[in-house]
Design a protein around this nucleic acid. Structure first.
Lengths: 124, 124, 124, 124
DNA sequence: GTGGTCTAGACCACC
DNA sequence: GTGGTCTAGACCACG
């Protein structure tokens, strides 16, 4: 796992876990790896992982069971909403960024088309 | 000017100025506002602006004239390259983000299409 | 530690640390003193030290580990190159200075010889 | 005339004029170019030249005659001493620099020898 | 007026 | 504890 500089690691971990959930690698109701396992896997300090999980608990995405660990919420609606929020954020940020450079909507689409063609590696 | 948390202000200032240059609001060879003016306008400390400008000088985008101020480089090739790098970064980040959610290239385009339709505000 | 006026302290700190590395007092891969320790030792502000270290990180001489500190790079080639550059700079500056006074190469050598004899303190 | 960054220009001007005097391009008792001429030639602000000349007056190297201009002192002893001081400073700084890198006196001479051989341009 | 450097002191992220 | 960022305020060099 590689982390960007200039962005707090705990936020990147949170994003990473949200992704694992959104893509179904971690399913609703399922126990997620222990803090120590995650810390080991992500080669990051335990405290940093703790902080990420704490935030996700506050968001309701995770539920702690004392002595057992953290579990993905079974609230499917919340999960879907979280996923949508993330995707929408990606779209919004991208479009906003392009707009600040004076790129019109139509151009955004063509530029994206071009980019996907250029980068041939197929994600059909 | 509103700054995001979680990303250093001086980097956002750098990005902001690069944008002003890329969109031609600041033209090649032109003097940019003084450090103090920028600090005032962006409601940020002078040192923070300094740091942004210093980096842009190292990148060659700006040239300092002692006692006079900072000027946009006249090296049009460098300016174009910088702009392209920024746009490509937006595209790459966006596509990568979507991919991590298992979205295929085709879906990315349709989702973007949908998003642009949804947000009606016309950037033709 | 005494600093010259007329040349930025952060540059002198950089030079000082490069010297410590070049002479092996700080070895490849080794942790260097913390920013605060250096600031204390050099009786200089923390930010000033930061600036020096930041530049050395950009040069690749130092590597930061988050939350741990700064470490000398293990890239021996880079270390050697940096040392050579410094020595060559000393030689070049010295020779240039003498030339501007109309001193010929031959005279430079004899003058240096004389100076070393005059200053008897042995650096065999 | 090219000036180093990180060193005040007025000091570099002072050094430049001292050199002109030491090498006899400006002779004892001779009038030196006017402040404006120097500023023009060195592509530098008048104030900056003024500051250099003021310092040299304080050192006694120059003598102002009101309404006439600046003249090199006729005190040959002082001129010789100034020149010697400068040369000795070059030698001392150079040797000190090399010593801080653990280079012995003998090695300094051989390294200088090597350097002069390497740089073939003959200053016999 | 312009930028460049430095200080003192604060708060944050990370180990 | 570690480094990273930011602020407020000061002084210097240069035009």
């Amino acid at each position: 796992m590689k982390f960007k500089d200039n962005v707090p690691i705990y936020l990147q971990i949170e994003q990473y876990l949200n992704r694992e959930i959104a893509t179904g690698k971690l399913q609703a109701g399922q126990k997620i790896p222990s803090v120590r396992q995650l810390a080991l896997k992500l080669t990051v300090n335990v405290n940093t992982v703790q902080r990420a999980l704490q935030q996700m608990n506050e968001h309701g995405i995770l539920k702690v069971k004392r002595g057992e660990g953290n579990f993905v919420t079974t609230d499917e609606a919340l999960l879907k909403q979280t996923k949508d929020e993330q995707l929408t954020k990606f779209l919004r940020d991208f479009v906003n960024n392009m707009h600040t450079f004076g790129i019109t909507n139509r151009e955004i689409l063509t530029q994206l088309q071009d980019y996907l063609d250029r980068e041939g590696y197929s994600h059909e």
